[in-house]
């Protein structure tokens, strides 16, 4: 699998050297090696697990997804096995992976987040955490934390203490008055990376029954439809917060091709994550890695870092 690299597409991500800037996005690639039938997971720059909560969660009733023009809505409801089974069943799989693994953490109360991170922060297999304070599909917690800068500060600093020396990225909701205010709150409270964006709360209506299609009524919009907004928000947070603070951005939202990923890098993301595209083409992430390398060769970009934030 290993190819001769003509250019250096490795990146520094909050002090950790990654072989390339491409992650899998939380909730689109399972807990570890679920996509191993389709791609060499160890070729990724980083892997982000689906959201883990302290207690197991059943998730929402079906229908949990609906397709839209150039996108999809999901309302899974953070279905996951819970911390205990994650440690017993999934951690051993993660320990065998050579790629840096980040655990996405969600919860209803700050204590829940802290408990999960405390338990996992001493695990050698885990490079860091992604704090999900922007899930639109749960009744409690989720996005309600991510809209208020004071709450963002509180939860980030509590988790920061529990995370020890691990990387802590805070995943931001896009539909807020000023995303830079939220980003700044997270950085001031100790986040050493920012993931943006999460999905947009949205609705699809069945006009025959005049009911929402999703059992949860609303869901999070992802896919190509959100990409231009995500690129804009990444650029805004890069200029207004991240660049000065020296904090890397993990850009995501509708990335389907290497060109999409390169837009995010130019906008200011140090790394990118591939989500919805993996549902259609399970090896999208590795195709994007190859595409980024080809772009760098074509444009004489010697180091990928030279591309980051290079927007004219």
């Amino acid at each position: 699998m290993a190819k001769k690299r003509e250019v250096d597409i490795s990146v520094d991500f909050a002090g950790r050297r990654l072989a390339n800037p491409v992650f899998t996005a939380s909730g689109t690639c399972g807990y570890g090696d679920e996509l191993a039938d389709f791609m060499d997971v160890n070729r990724l720059g980083g892997f982000i697990t689906k959201s883990i909560t302290l207690q197991p969660r059943k998730g929402n009733p079906a229908p949990r997804i609906v397709e839209t023009d150039a996108g999809m809505l999901n309302a899974i409801g953070l279905a996951n096995v819970g911390l205990e089974r994650f440690v017993a069943e999934k951690l051993p799989v993660i320990a065998r992976m050579s790629v840096p693994v980040f655990v996405n953490v969600a919860g209803e109360r700050i204590d829940d987040y802290v408990a999960v991170v405390e338990r996992l922060a001493s695990e050698k297999a885990i490079a860091g955490f992604e704090l999900n304070i922007s899930c639109p599909n749960v009744a409690k917690g989720g996005i309600s934390f991510g809209r208020d800068p004071e709450q963002v500060k509180e939860i980030t600093s509590a988790v920061r203490k529990a995370a020890g020396d691990r990387i802590l990225s805070v995943k931001l909701a896009p539909a807020v008055t000023d995303i830079s205010v939220i980003a700044r709150a997270a950085v001031e409270a100790g986040a050493n990376a920012l993931s943006l964006i999460n999905t947009f709360t949205a609705m699809v209506i069945d006009i025959e029954t005049r009911r929402p299609v999703l059992a949860n009524r609303t869901g999070g919009l992802s896919g190509p439809a959100v990409k231009p907004i995500a690129v804009y928000l990444v650029n805004k947070v890069y200029n207004e917060v991240a660049k000065k603070a020296g904090i890397p951005i993990l850009g995501l939202g509708g990335i389907r091709t290497a060109s999409d990923a390169i837009e995010f890098l130019i906008a200011g993301a140090s790394a990118v994550a591939v989500g919805t595209a993996s549902f259609i083409q399970p090896d999208s992430a590795v195709r994007i890695i190859d595409g980024i390398e080809a772009y760098c060769v074509r444009h004489n970009v010697a180091r990928l870092a030279d591309l980051v934030g290079s927007l004219a």
């Binding site: 909730g27 689109t28 679920e34 079906a62 229908p63 949990r64 997804i65 999901n74 899974i76 399970p282």
Partner: peptide, 17 residues
């Protein structure tokens, strides 16, 4: 039958109770 995105167990859309 359920609405599904991936078909391979990662999107978790196709819940059957």
């Amino acid at each position: 039958e359920r609405r599904m995105a991936c078909g391979i167990g990662v999107c978790q859309s196709c819940a059957v109770e």
